[in-house]
Design a protein around this nucleic acid. Structure first.
Lengths: 357, 357
DNA sequence: GTGAAAGCGCTAACAT
DNA sequence: ATGTTAGCGCTTTCAC
């Protein structure tokens, strides 16, 4: 008696052979067959070989649902990112996918659009799938309902891009937003700019935008310059040109714009051009993010470069370390990881025009 | 006796209450509790209410692994896209996510980078997760090992972007690549261009690039113009400028470039600028894809606009129809869906310069 | 080193 | 309309 399912000893046509079928074929018990794949050390080599042969011959494909359910550990990581439409997160996803799959983990991706209601739904969706942990980016890590919920439920998660503050117990992988922004603005100052304005998207909502603005203030103060108020452009599509025009029509028009992200910077450069200004001859623009597209443009976008792919990979790595930690909680790596940034100063930055007032 | 797990009648601390716990609390059988969520019509309202109350009180969270395993139907869709780094696919993912989650389906995303070996691995990964079906984009649908495998295994899948040919039995959602490319080139011709060259990435590998080239030929022939050989630029990063320079230094230099995708077009425009040429004054550039970024640029990128988000949503819709079909195979909708495209003719297209030879 | 048996959380006959 | 029962495919004690 070899078969154990249908009378003729063949597996159901439904969905391929199960591990039990393989075990039968290899004339070992189900337990042994399972061990061959899960704990190879526990089984004699010759036996393992028989099982592997049978598995290959039958084209056995393990059903991950079975193991995940039984093991009470899904080896799945839930990922919640704001959107894939911003290349920053797309590049980050590459790192996440590589790191997770390489470690034998599965992924479940959802996008939130920073919409709190959708965040709740998506998190619930991930939780129902029993992900072991999460990697996510939220608008403001210090005021996030979903993060609070995750904390309350004891779900392990690592923030990407959001930079956990000193007081919080949260884990994060990011660059030093404030310091890197300061570096970028100093490059602007070094080029001779004194009137630099920060352009941001939904400024109040984004912790990173605020941290980067603080870095801008640091740089300005360090050089005895007066910080200008932020120019907030919540909608990417709208006629931002009008607001920008108003700015450059002033007496003390800024000579440089520091945009808190690259997409914004690209939009601002276009707006500037439509206004008849040349970049960088008439006005300089500095971005933040370092998306690949920036260096393809003409002029290449000057920007503060984050290691986007690495941020994703390291966030996964950190989460994995956490999950595999001796249950005594905190993983080996530091709670908050600050990855090095780089400056791409070229193209859209030049010395300010030497016009007389 | 209410509890059924630990002596004190409380659920394990491990991972929240199970449906059985809820059933106990609501004083109904496990089966009834299950029906409350799966087949509400089969249970009396008052009973359902008791179950719902208990569930809410206990903060019951269904374990999807259990149902997926038992139901032999995961309600999961596997998605394999080339990369998220191209905005086309990022926009497509939006549509996929919305459509799938709205229909109560779960998603599993992997990227292939068009690498055949990685495609195999990722498909196997999806299959081990027992996805009910797939939505995917491959380099060349007519010569794809993974597609052949999927066919052999009888896995339902719908292609996105790839346009299934008449002879194949494959399902797809895309635009009419050839026709839309023809339309785009005709716009170039209407603007006065006669020497138009097609620029492509890995031309031989991409079925869409070839289809679009055919559309270009159609347009040229229809107007008595001689098609020029394609300029193939496999690597996005390299010094494509040299090849482009060689072209425009010729006697009969092209006055317009038709790039088979927007990313390429953006790169070509930059190269042209570096070569000292103005777009569109000196040379016109037409893209293909319609990524959002294109309209933000200055000049706005003229392009053939695909409904990217809709392509994703419709691909999911088509797959769902298929999966829910009476098992007699073919879904209600047509096997191959051709979505309407649009032309964005502005910005990077102008009449050719009227220089004398 | 290997096997027998229990069960992860859920659904779906089959009874009643 | 509700309960009983039998698994889905796998891992994991516990014996031997």
């Amino acid at each position: 008696m070899t078969g154990r399912h249908s009378p003729d000893g063949k597996a159901r046509s439904g969905s391929g052979p199960t591990l039990a079928d393989v075990a039968d074929a290899a004339r070992v018990s189900l337990a042994t067959a399972s061990r061959v794949f899960s704990h190879p050390a526990m089984v004699r080599d010759s036996t393992a070989q028989r099982v592997h042969d049978a598995a290959r011959r039958m084209e056995f494909r393990p059903n991950l649902l079975g193991s995940k359910l039984r093991a009470q550990q899904t080896r799945m990581i839930g990922v919640m990112l704001p959107t894939m439409d911003n290349a920053v997160f797309a590049e980050c996803w590459r790192g996440i996918e590589e790191a997770a799959l390489a470690a034998g983990y599965s992924l479940m991706l959802v996008t939130s659009g920073y919409d709190p209601m959708r965040e709740r739904e998506r998190i619930e969706y991930l939780l129902r799938h029993r992900v072991d942990g999460m990697v996510l980016t939220v608008a403001d890590a210090a005021h996030s309902a979903v993060l609070d919920q995750l904390d309350a439920e004891g779900v392990p998660y690592v923030l990407a891009y959001n930079q956990a503050g000193g007081r919080s117990r949260r884990h994060s992988v990011s660059v030093d937003n404030r310091g890197s922004a300061c570096d970028g603005v100093e490059a602007l100052i070094a080029a001779g700019h004194r009137r630099i304005v920060v352009v941001s998207g939904a400024f109040i909502a984004s912790d990173r935008a605020r941290q980067r603005y603080a870095g801008y203030q640091d740089a300005m103060h360090a050089h005895g310059l007066a910080p200008l108020p932020v120019l907030s452009l919540p909608s990417h599509t709208a006629s931002n040109a009008a607001q920008i025009r108003a700015l450059i029509d002033e007496d003390d028009a800024p000579t440089a714009f520091f945009c808190t992200n690259d997409l914004l910077a690209i939009g601002v450069i276009s707006d500037l051009r439509r206004l008849g200004l040349r970049v960088p001859d008439d006005v300089s623009v500095l971005g933040y993010d370092g998306i690949a597209l920036g260096s393809v443009m003409e002029p290449p976008l000057a920007t503060v470069v984050q290691p986007n792919t690495d941020i994703g990979a390291r966030a996964v790595g950190h989460l994995l370390a956490w999950l595999h930690a001796p249950t005594g909680e905190t993983p080996a790596a530091a709670r908050v990881t600050l990855l090095p940034h780089a400056l791409r100063v070229s193209g859209s930055i030049a010395a300010p025009p030497t016009v007389s007032t």
